[in-house]
């Protein structure tokens, strides 16, 4: 004998919110920018998050995947993502147009320890698509400039055309309160006015670093971590002040599906932001 089923009254963490693509355009050949607004206005405005957190985005038929937020919580209402076409979900997203609906839920993950970072120097080191999560924390620092001491940005890309948010960062160079250094591995245009070389060649430009009071934030392709972390450790920045955000496959974002498990931690709950100290102790992290 079957009884009548009750609908649950609580919040179901697996069910997304309908969200609308407000703007989308190509940032580079294979990276697209998405500006998204949750359809329910109240929910759109109450969507509170930290830089470094991520959201699950779904497209019916293609599936669901985690994407870190590139926008800053200091500018509420619209959520921004930089997405590279890599798999089923991203391919479906690339086919979508402005005004199309997607599913969105979140925010998830730990995010950057903003409170610990208050009144400290913030050194952001970005390679390629690593800009996606770090743009959020950079804009957050600039919007709340008095909460942080010096802010540095070291940004490396392969070629000028592949520097994501190139114009935005070139414009930021004008700011007095940001020490912004941009570089490309190789200038195929002959018009690049900034540095040439891998991102670690920018380190000598950093002057009078106060390592005990500096947070180093790193995100980029796997090959970058080894060299950048070496530089940060050489600068004597404490291992638990070297922060990085990592990527894993996720199916739930809320610590249930198991896909992002590493040793005994879940990237979706305990990450995606980890310290270098964590990385030393989690053998599979990078």
């Amino acid at each position: 004998m079957n009884s009548q089923n009750k609908q649950l009254t609580g919040v179901n963490p697996f069910v997304p919110q309908p969200a609308r693509i407000v703007r989308t355009y190509y940032l580079t050949e294979d990276v697209k920018f998405f500006q998204v607004r949750i359809v329910d206005m109240e929910k759109a405005l109450s969507f509170e998050y930290l830089p470094g957190q991520f959201a699950m985005i779904s497209v019916l038929g293609a599936g669901e995947a985690p994407f870190c937020l590139s926008s800053t919580p200091s500018r509420p209402g619209l959520l921004e993502f930089c997405i590279r076409k890599a798999g089923a979900v991203t391919s479906a997203l690339f086919r979508m147009k402005e005004n199309d609906l997607i599913g969105l839920r979140g925010p998830y993950g730990n995010g950057f320890p903003i409170e610990r970072m208050h009144n400290k120097d913030i050194l952001i080191i970005v390679g390629g698509l690593g800009v996606a999560p770090l743009r959020s924390v950079l804009l957050y620092c600039l919007d709340n400039r008095d909460q942080f001491r010096r802010v540095f940005l070291l940004h490396g890309a392969k070629r000028p055309a592949e520097m994501i948010f190139r114009e935005e960062f070139l414009a930021l160079k004008e700011r007095e309160d940001l020490e912004c250094h941009l570089t490309v591995d190789d200038d195929d245009t002959g018009t690049w006015t900034e540095k040439i070389g891998v991102v670690t060649t920018l380190f000598p430009l950093l002057e009078e670093i106060d390592p005990a009071n500096t947070f180093g934030l790193v995100c980029g392709p796997p090959v970058m971590y080894k060299f950048v972390i070496k530089e940060l450790v050489n600068l004597n920045i404490p291992k638990d002040q070297i922060l990085m955000t990592l990527e894993r496959r996720m199916k739930c974002g809320v610590g249930k599906c198991g896909h992002c498990a590493i040793d005994y931690i879940y990237t979706c709950l305990d990450g995606p932001v980890f310290t270098y100290w964590d990385v030393i102790h989690m053998r599979e992290l990078i």
Binding site: L60, G63, C252, C257, G258, H259
Partner: peptide, 10 residues
């Protein structure tokens, strides 16, 4: 064990 995957039925 409780790991799962998600599949869309369109």
């Amino acid at each position: 064990c409780g790991c799962y995957n998600i599949m869309d039925k369109q």
